[in-house]
Design a protein around this nucleic acid. Structure first.
Lengths: 259, 259
DNA sequence: CGGCAATTTGAGTAAGGTCAAGCCTAGTGG
DNA sequence: CCACTAGGCTTGACCTTACTCAAATTGCCG
């Protein structure tokens, strides 16, 4: 676990020295940007696992960045069905900036214990518009999110359970690796099978059978909140992970941990 | 069909007087903006139905706006499966601006005959950054697209065929209505059943049975490239179209045709 | 009028869902 | 230190939705 970021319980006082900043949408901001506009109203908030961080319909007063822990953007239907739209990992914006100031079209719930940094929307917007590099990284992140959504649409529309599950594992590993939070195919994996089911449009029963099949062939190993890819080529083959499809590129190449 | 925009075969010479401009991401640009930066390199391009407008992997040299006709963003898998990510209607950006300059992660194919306006990327970017109002409408459009993607993810992950089909019809009617291209529940509907199937992750056979059921109960009427919602409340009930869900708001209220 | 694309219908099948138990395992409290 | 519990995981039996394959029909266009 050498390269894994072990974030302290609370974020540091200044963004400038923050480990997580390198993973954020303002990663390209230099010292001078923070000198001019130091995110005066920054708050730190934290939640236990399985709490509602933001509720569908509310108008958030702040822009939130995940400092540590995992969360999920969720749509809850009236009859109890629920769909996880995406998982939110350290460094990610909890709510895309474009949506800020409007009623949320989804809820955000913590998967694990989560620590967040919250910035006042107006100040954050001004800050993000203060340099072309920042606008550029915002655009990159938008593009990556669109691509991730599109990928999920293809998965749900066209792929069977085995493909969906294997692709989710590879997607998460890719994102974590780019954040320096996965190495040698091993990473924290706090999702319950119910999270996987809700994200992939399957039932927990079927997710269980699918994971069991993968574990039975020793393609993956999991448990105790961790996941290990034991046979990557088999996993990629099952996922239909042809090189062409393999780039949901959730972060710019500059930050790629390896490969 | 009084309020329907009947666009001439070719776009007018100037954006300023263009009917379709009101539907675009630069709808908030005034005469002065065009005076300063009149999209010098604008081109007009048109395609017959069922042509590939942009190919997966290519790096488009221009930003395209649909002037007339329908297109679809499509992911084609190696084994022949295909998923339509979204339909692109008049006034819509063919490729989101954030993705510009990078290899396309999908193809764009025309559904009907389509006329496009193409702008040089650099000039368009400069133009869009020239006013806060423009940045604002870009953000609104991003938010609307994210919401539309999220909605599709919920549909594919959680909803059955009847819900998916009815919701697609209502979604398209809503978008067209806001563009002034639908009235009294009647609108152009050039999609083949195969388009619907590819968008909703179903087979054409099953789409056919679902549509037949709706037509049999006289909830919708269709054919000859048109659709009519004959029994809106029944349609909305089948779609689970509770008021809360009913706003994929693809354009700002200011442009709403009615309601 | 002939031909091709699209739609429609039927019969059989399979992937994944539903329902219902039973089984771990990490905490908790005695 | 151990029994108890609750949440999560696992497994079995059966069922439903949507898919597959195949053929017939319709409609459009030259």
């Amino acid at each position: 676990m050498s390269s894994v970021i072990l974030a302290p319980a609370t974020p540091p006082a200044s963004c400038l020295g923050c480990e997580v900043r390198k993973l954020t949408v303002y990663r390209t901001a230099g010292a001078e940007a923070f000198a001019q506009s130091p995110f005066v109203d920054r708050l730190r908030v934290s939640f236990e696992a399985k709490q509602t961080i933001l509720q569908d319909g509310e108008v958030p007063a702040h822009i939130h960045i995940v400092y540590s822990g995992w969360a999920a953007r969720v749509k809850q239907l009236a009859d109890g069905r629920r769909q996880i739209l995406s998982f939110v990992l350290p460094g990610d914006l909890v709510v895309r900036h474009a949506t800020a100031g409007k009623p949320l079209p989804f809820s955000v719930r913590s998967v694990t214990r989560v620590a967040l940094c919250a910035f006042e929307i107006g100040a954050f917007t001004t800050f993000m518009r203060s340099s072309v590099a920042l606008l550029q990284s915002a655009a990159e992140d938008y593009a990556a999110e669109f691509e991730q959504s599109d990928q999920r649409i293809v998965d749900l529309g066209q792929r069977d359970a085995m493909e969906r599950v294997t692709r989710l594992i590879l997607e998460l590993e890719g994102r974590l690796k780019r954040k320096g939070m996965a190495a040698d195919g091993k990473f924290e994996f706090p999702l319950r099978q119910e999270h996987i089911a809700d994200a992939l449009g399957l039932t927990t029963v079927h997710v269980n059978r699918t994971l069991s099949a993968l574990r039975g062939k020793d393609i993956i190993r999991y448990g105790h909140g961790r996941m290990e890819i034991a046979d990557r080529s088999a996993l990629e083959r099952l996922a239909g992970w042809h090189a062409a499809t393999a780039r949901p590129s959730a972060a710019p190449e500059a930050l790629a941990a390896s490969r």
